[in-house]
């Protein structure tokens, strides 16, 4: 069953008179529990596509569906709710809040979505193998540890979809492998739908399906 779907999705950026078409005619269907890698060279539009899938940006043309809901026309408040319930994000630069501890960073989405559950945050920290680092601030954690905290944060509201944007981009090979293994296990054991944006074909190859993007089109 499809959990993510786009129809003729296109995005054009305008800068004064100049127009840049970043994505065009993207038709993509991702099934529930699927692990899809979106691969492509730098500047091909991978991150833009991910942003559109998450409702972070509005498409110039086309539609995006999360489950049965068409999100392209929804107001920001509804989008925020959908993101909180349906999506988990993992970023290349971790994006942890420096003034929050590892545990607080994980708790944050639950608080914003009005479902605070410190016990669950601890369980997830344990799941990513960092229960001993719960009171540490991001600056006191290594890159790999930070990304594991970010993954725990993405999982905390139990969203069915995880969107990971170059999650290994800032990590060494050992930590990169750990993160990819974690994502794979989430897919296989917890049936999470994973959309992984990467330019590393070795990691992309571990996905069930690879979507190649080139010059804003699926190739």
């Amino acid at each position: 069953m499809e959990i993510l779907r786009t129809i003729e999705l296109g995005k054009t950026y305008r800068d004064g008179e100049k127009e840049t078409e970043v994505l065009r005619g993207i038709n993509l269907e991702i099934d529930e529990g699927e692990f899809v890698a979106i691969a492509g060279p730098s500047g091909s539009g991978k991150s833009t596509l991910l942003g559109l899938l998450a409702g972070l940006d509005r498409p110039t043309t086309g539609q995006v569906f999360i489950g049965e809901t068409e999100i392209t026309t929804l107001p920001e408040s509804r989008l925020a709710k959908i993101r909180g319930r349906m999506l988990g994000f993992v970023f290349q630069s971790f994006n942890l809040i420096p003034t929050l501890t590892a545990l607080e960073n994980i708790e944050l989405p639950m608080i914003l979505n009005k479902k605070p559950d410190p016990q669950r945050a601890r369980e997830l920290l344990d799941l990513v193998g960092l229960s001993h680092r719960s009171r540490h601030y991001p600056s006191q954690l290594s890159g790999g540890e930070q990304q594991r905290v970010a993954i725990a944060r993405a999982l905390v509201c139990d969203p069915p979809i995880i969107l990971a944007d170059e999650p290994t981009g800032n990590l060494d090979s050992k930590n990169s492998q750990t993160v990819i293994d974690l994502l794979l296990s989430l897919n296989s054991e917890k049936q999470k739908t994973i959309v992984l944006v990467t330019h590393d074909m070795d990691f992309a190859a571990k996905a069930q399906r690879i979507v190649h993007i080139n010059d804003g089109r699926i190739s």
């Binding site: 920001e76 925020a80 993101r83 909180g84 994006n95 944050l108 989405p109 914003l112 979505n113």
Partner: peptide, 16 residues
Amino acid sequence: LKQSALMKCVGGRTSQ
């Protein structure tokens, strides 16, 4: 700004 954007990514609203 970026923290606010992140909070919105994880379900936060402007008012929160």
